[in-house]
Write a protein that binds this DNA or RNA. Structure first.
Length: 151
DNA sequence: GCCAACGTTGGC
DNA sequence: GCCAACGTTGGC
């Protein structure tokens, strides 16, 4: 099983929103590096659900990959904010996965707090200038973050 | 709202 | 293939 971190603006989808819905489609990824990671995901992988562009950016909970990657339908939908005029049914360059809620943290692990953790120094999230919205997390990094939630 | 950093586009 | 201009991300 692999581990990941994915960013979402809570106005779009928050960890509590996912908790209410149970499952959701993770779509709208429009960056090739992030998309490639989406395509590497397997059912059962878990990820840290990160809240971005909000009053308290940070890891807000854990969710699970419920399906392997499939073509992102929002790329083909002219009504969608994520519509891509260059995508077609035959050639859709973008991928989505379905996700399911696992756990909402009682407290968000803020970005500032995460930056203080030596064990996370290699994580793209805390590196200067990184805007990657989907990234792999090592088992060690996963354990380090998990430990922060258990006190 | 500002702005640094990054990715993409398109002229040449 | 270079690179300037532009658009986006995302913290603050």
């Amino acid at each position: 099983m692999a581990f990941w971190l994915m960013k979402s603006e809570p106005d779009e989808l928050s960890i509590t929103g996912l908790g209410t819905q149970g499952t959701a489609r993770w779509d709208g990824v429009r960056n090739y590096q992030a998309r490639n990671f989406i395509r590497e995901m397997n059912e059962g992988d878990e990820f840290f659900f990160y809240h971005s562009s909000c009053p308290e950016p940070g890891i807000a909970g854990i969710a699970r990959i419920a399906t392997a990657a499939y073509p992102d339908p929002t790329a083909l939908d002219p009504e969608s904010h994520y519509f891509d005029a260059k995508a077609s049914h035959e050639k859709n360059p973008w991928s989505a996965v379905d996700v399911e809620h696992v756990r909402t943290f009682r407290q968000v692990l803020s970005l500032g707090f995460l930056k203080q953790q030596a064990a996370l120094g290699e994580l793209a999230l805390v590196q200067k200038g990184s805007r990657l919205s989907v990234m792999p997390v090592t088992a060690e990094q996963w354990a380090a973050v998990f430990a922060l939630t258990e006190r």
